[in-house]
Design a protein around this nucleic acid. Structure first.
Lengths: 198, 198, 198, 198
DNA sequence: AATGAATGAGCCTTCATTCAT
DNA sequence: GATGAATGAAGGCTCATTCAT
């Protein structure tokens, strides 16, 4: 009797199609805006307007500005995890260069989401989230290296994963006009050569 | 390059020692605060208080919050330029590995300033500044490669510079507890090997 | 006095048992909530949830938040009027002390309702309502005094009624832990002595 | 170096005459507005406008709406304490009726302030503040009774003080048109007679 | 008739910037 | 030149009320 029987729970996940669409529109608009102007420079009113939502409705789904950022962050973390997990299924038997290609392609696909995620983590000083994301990526990449390289020095694995990750960051930061043509290919070669050399 | 040459206008470069000290204190405080809390979370009143300046005086030297950020950005760009220029004087005759070490050490020295600069550029969406900084760094690194590598394929030079730069970013982003020990050494090896291989 | 006689208009008095129960539940919930948190701090959504009503249905019975408060106020005024009227039937022949006891007991029974009513009148600045309630109470108390006291100076009656009322307010404001034990008895004696003295 | 050297401390007491006047104007405006419309119905913008203050300046002196209410409450508590303390100095040798008159006059002088204080305590649910104020008043009134009445039953003192206080509340609640003429005099007689009777 | 998602006016509060002293 | 009190635009958020389903 105290809690709403089916009342307007703030921040609740939408149940009807209309709500689902709205949430998607909001996240879409947020992504664009955060990328363009940075977390702090974007106003909730702006997000509402851009996504065609009334400010009150925006707050129905996301009870605070931080909640919007969190949703974006969570979504990125999930895709990252799922993607790398799925890569692990395909990695066995890959050549180093094939793994390099797979990793680069994967990061290219996540490019936009990763940029927003980084921006959010930076703007809000979420050092913990950053560390967690990084740690989990290093773990996953390490596992992939273990699958592809015939003999691995377990002690060097973390550092090697870090090196690979650093190059992948370059991939993810590339943007229209930001990276000259050919650099992407250079990154592929770089990782490939690195893995083969080990 | 530093400021307007005018007499007593807002934002003029200080002439007397007292003013010079104040500006230094302000920039020092800004650096610390921006690093700790991010550009938007820092208030002008805070900068004034931390640097022991009256808010009115702060505005005498820096006519807006953006002006403070710009000064920091300009200072970073200058150090970057000067440093790489000076490196060029010493680079002739260096071995690839020596150049790699020199570059890594250089980035380590600029670590803090670079972090603030990135934070400012991110928070304010200064894509142009970012592009300019990047372009100028690529130019300088390219010149260094040309000096150290006996034979260079001019067409590949920009991409190679970009690859090296990407690793150097990893260096600059290292922090206490952020990079496991040994990664820095790995970065040195990575660049060295890369340059030798070419 | 209760509501509009219209058919299905907003705020109409419910005809079926289901509606009557709902209205009762709403008023019950409102009373509790208003007492606990004050008029302004209570939201319509809260009232709906606590009374197990959909927000839309709540608005069917009470077209605005003020309407809920008005209903509570009206209900209090009615009970007050009815009670004092009924007291008048029993008052003839009472001793002063018996009347004092009857009045005190009556106010104790209305304690909760009176607290909410006062809170509502205060929060909404309904000076007119307050004056009306007071005037009508003074009238009724005056009538009672006339019934019990053998000889009354009509000119002093209003002031005497006011004095009695002031003590009764003390009765109504008593609460768990708010009044030390014995104060209630003291009030009874006070009024009794006062009336006997006249 | 961390705290402002002389910076803009929020909520600091004003030092210059200008600031002192402003604070007075703000408290004056708040008193009027709170009395007229109730705590919740008054907006900070309204207080600022009514007191001729910019909203920013209002927040300089009172960092929140609650802070305004607290200041009013504190001021009332102080006047109450000081006044009753000062009454104690004069009370020795007073006749019961003289004490009654002094108490009534005192409450009449505090009328307005008391009304606001009650309104604030009610609107914000500050049961603790209410209890403290009440306890301290009972204490003070008890001390006065002890000074004036030749023989006192210490056990009955608290209840007697409560009875007197209840009548004084009536005094304080009187307002233009709220109490018919003569009621005030009736209150004086009531207390006087009560004290003499003991 | 019932339901609860949607709406948007308006509130409290912050802070970059100005200017009288 | 220095100081810091004053200013007010603008942001995040709430909630009474409406109306499509």
């Amino acid at each position: 009797m105290t809690a709403s029987p089916s009342g307007t729970a703030r921040g609740a996940a939408p149940k009807r199609q209309r709500g689902i669409d709205r949430v998607a529109a909001i996240l879409q608009a947020s992504t664009t805006l955060f990328l363009d102007k940075g977390y702090d420079a974007v106003t909730m009113t702006e997000i509402a307007a851009t996504s065609g939502t009334a400010i009150g409705s925006l707050y129905r789904f996301f009870p605070s500005k931080e909640a919007v950022a969190d949703a974006l962050l969570r979504s990125y973390a999930e895709r990252l995890g799922h993607g790398l997990l799925e890569l692990r299924d395909r990695a066995a038997g890959m050549s180093p260069r094939q793994l390099a290609d797979a990793l680069v392609d994967f990061m290219l696909a996540l490019r936009t989401q990763r940029s927003v995620a980084i921006a959010l983590v930076d703007a809000r000083g979420l050092e913990d989230s950053r560390r967690q994301l990084r740690a989990s990526m290093l773990e996953d990449i390490g596992a992939l290296l273990r699958l592809v390289l015939p003999v691995v020095d377990e002690a060097r694995l973390p550092a090697m994963a870090a090196a690979v990750l650093q190059v992948l960051k370059g991939v993810a930061q590339s943007g229209p006009g930001f990276e000259m043509a050919g650099t992407m290919e250079e990154y592929r070669r770089l990782i490939g050569a690195y893995l083969e050399a080990v």
